[in-house]
Simulated assay, not measured.
Amino acid sequence: MPVNVLTKNGYTGINIVSLWVAAQLKGFSSPVWATYKQWSELGAQVRAGVKSSPVIFNKEFDAEPDPDVADDDGKPRVARASRVFNAAQVEGYALNPVPEPLGPVARIAGADAFVRGTGARIEHGGDRAFYRPSTDRIQMPPEEMF
């Protein structure tokens, strides 16, 4: 999920899709974004000539409704467009290292017994986990994958 490097807040709404598309089109693997000013505050410099991506900031405030305005619900809204840059577009910022894979998962005997006790039909194979209602079974990747 796209996240702001300075605030650590995840982007929301249409900004998620917009930044996913921008990252895909421009080949960015990092989900980290920030405005020019935010990158500067962190001591990083946006590379010359790179293009920003748009995001929309919106906020709703609580206020007293104006009795003279029929459709005033007392919640004025503000929307402002900003431009952000991906971590791949800046110099002087080190991305957090990718954590090492965890390795094999230790079996928990009590959990295995509980699952067996449910009578659920579990089959192993393929590369993803899912439940198929039409056959009332759970599909799991081979145990070696996890």
Rank of each mutant, 00 (worst) to 15 (best):
T118H: 06
A48C: 02
W20Y: 08
V55C: 07
S18M: 13
A106E: 15
D72C: 09
E91C: 01
E144Q: 09
P141A: 10
E41H: 11
A44H: 06
E123S: 08
Q139H: 11
V5C: 06
V46I: 10
P142G: 11
A106P: 02
G10T: 07
N4W: 04
A44R: 03
R137P: 00
W33A: 03
R80K: 15
V98E: 12
P97L: 06
Q89V: 07
N4Y: 03
T118Q: 09
M140G: 06
E123G: 03
A120L: 08
V3Q: 10
A63V: 02
K51N: 13
P65V: 03
Y11N: 03
R137Q: 14
L6P: 01
D72W: 01
D68F: 08
D73E: 13
A23F: 02
A111K: 12
R80Y: 05
N96I: 01
G74T: 04
T118A: 07
N96P: 10
M145D: 14
R132N: 15
M140A: 11
T135D: 13
G27S: 08
V84C: 05
E41Q: 15
T118K: 05
I14N: 04
P133R: 06
L42V: 06
A34S: 12
E60P: 00
I108W: 05
P54Q: 12
I122L: 11
Y93V: 02
A63Y: 01
V3T: 09
A44F: 09
F28D: 07
L42F: 09
P133G: 09
A44T: 06
A81Q: 13
S40P: 00
Y131R: 03
L25E: 15
T118L: 11
L42A: 08
L25Y: 00
T135V: 14
S18I: 04
S53H: 05
S18F: 00
S29W: 00
E60S: 15
A111S: 12
E143D: 03
G49E: 12
T7N: 10
Q45L: 13
I14T: 08
F85V: 02
G49W: 09
N9R: 15
A129K: 00
F57M: 12
L42I: 08
E100F: 05
S29C: 04
I16M: 03
P104Q: 15
N15A: 07
A113R: 12
V32Q: 10
F114L: 14
N9K: 15
Q24K: 08
N86Y: 05
F57S: 12
K75Q: 14
W20G: 00
P31C: 06
E100M: 13
L19E: 02
D66F: 02
T12M: 09
P31E: 05
A120N: 05
G27K: 01
A79Y: 02
P97Y: 05
D71S: 08
D112T: 12
P99M: 12
I138W: 10
M145P: 00
E123H: 00
R80A: 13
V50N: 04
V5S: 05
A94S: 13
G27H: 02
G119I: 04
Q139R: 03
